[in-house]
Write a protein that binds this DNA or RNA. Structure first.
Lengths: 233, 233
DNA sequence: TGAATGCTTCGACTAAGGTCGAACCATGAA
DNA sequence: TTCATGGTTCGACCTTAGTCGAAGCATTCA
């Protein structure tokens, strides 16, 4: 009667408002404790604990114990990817729960998507990398070219150790606000980390907003020129 | 407190078993009536009607009236894409509801994903198209190259009329069984249609299985050679 | 050892929503 | 018009599961 895996169970897990809030909070890419997630979802700690164990059992989260704290993060890129897709559907079907407030513009410009840069600046970066042949499509998936590897090394990203890890280096991720691709994967994460190290940008603690400094924006545009800007002269 | 669109509502819509069954049935790409979907989901017609109006209100379906029948199909590619993503999560988290039966192998080999070919043969086709430069990544998204357009025209696909429609021509779609990309979009749909016209394959009426004839498989492999097969000599 | 903190488990309450029978509307055929 | 078929609406039932108070572990710190 029914083929394929059990969609309903997973979707139902995401479908509860409290759990959806927790997952959305985890899209910031940071690992959060039970209490923090309870606060985020607006429920008591007991309730949060119950929700989190269900999400964990469903394979959506990765728990880690540290002392008397228990940290949760998303289980992986696939989870983040599906969540972004759902956001796209929700946004597309016209029922934005959120009236467009001041924070909304910031979110569209630059935000964190799980662990990498999303929003307008995220897609700009992706476009620039593609246009200059630093990443490309080889066979079935996105790969870093040799010039791209040199470029990243120049930016002091340790490509070799990233390659050793089993997480995919490059991934495409569809942006719900821009409806275009941006760079995910461990390389995407590494770029964002570097931006923070260089103080080009810093993440807001409570929201997913990534705020770039004035100098940061300038440096970013130098590093990732887009078609409309002068490229190499 | 919470940013972004309302994930929970959409996910809850998908999260009910009866509704999930309906959506899975619609992944076949065909438009189905209320009674058919009720049968598919194992509920009475009243219940199905209630579910369908909710799914419709949520923007997941596209209803069409025809005489005294009411046909439902998925609202678009984005919906199908999210559903495939959810299947991937469900399959990945190890909890396949379905014990692997005889039909499962067929599903993995070739099935319909909304309106295009998925499964092993779907990813083979995609790989072949990419490897020979018939489709490629330009800027942010997948496009048909000039040689690709000629190739499609040769296969008697009317690219021009596809271009006129507002649906995207090429899209990547992640395969839950293969965990690799295959070709979606109106071109993906057109290819599958041609396979059926040429009697290379036909869709099973009740499931998502696409069964290729012996000649069909041979012709398919000639048209979409993979790396391990001789390409042009 | 004792106190404090972070989290989990248990049990009871409650609200939300899926389900179906029955009646009702709309379309098409005789 | 009359009948049959496909779909919707209404109302009542009832299961499911989200919620929190209270008690129970586990870990850290003094």
């Amino acid at each position: 009667m029914k083929e394929g895996p059990d969609i309903a169970h997973i979707a139902a897990l995401i479908g509860d408002p409290a759990r959806a809030n927790m997952l959305t909070a985890l899209m910031s890419g940071k690992a959060l404790t039970v209490s923090e997630l309870a606060e985020e979802a607006g429920v008591t700690i007991q309730t949060a604990s119950s929700h989190l164990s269900k999400l964990d059992a469903g394979g959506l989260l990765r728990p880690r114990k540290q002392g008397r704290h228990k940290y949760f993060s998303l289980a992986g890129d696939e989870v983040a990817h599906v969540l972004e897709g759902l956001m796209g559907l929700a946004a597309g079907s016209g029922q934005l729960r959120r009236r467009t407030g001041p924070k909304d513009a910031e979110l569209r410009q630059a935000r964190v998507c799980y662990n990498h840069l999303a929003g307008d600046m995220g897609t700009q970066m992706f476009d620039s990398l593609i246009a200059r042949g630093l990443v490309g499509l080889d066979g079935e998936r996105l790969v870093l070219t040799d010039t791209g590897a040199a470029f990243a090394a120049d930016f002091e990203i340790d490509i070799e150790s990233l390659r050793k890890a089993r997480a995919p280096l490059c991934r495409e991720c569809l942006d719900w606000s821009e409806r275009r691709s941006h760079l995910a994967g461990s390389l995407g994460r590494a770029f964002l980390t570097r931006f923070e190290e260089l103080s080009w940008a810093k993440r807001d603690q409570k929201t997913r907003v990534v705020s770039f400094s004035r100098d940061g924006i300038r440096a970013f545009h130098d590093l990732f020129p887009t078609g409309s800007l002068p490229v190499g002269g």
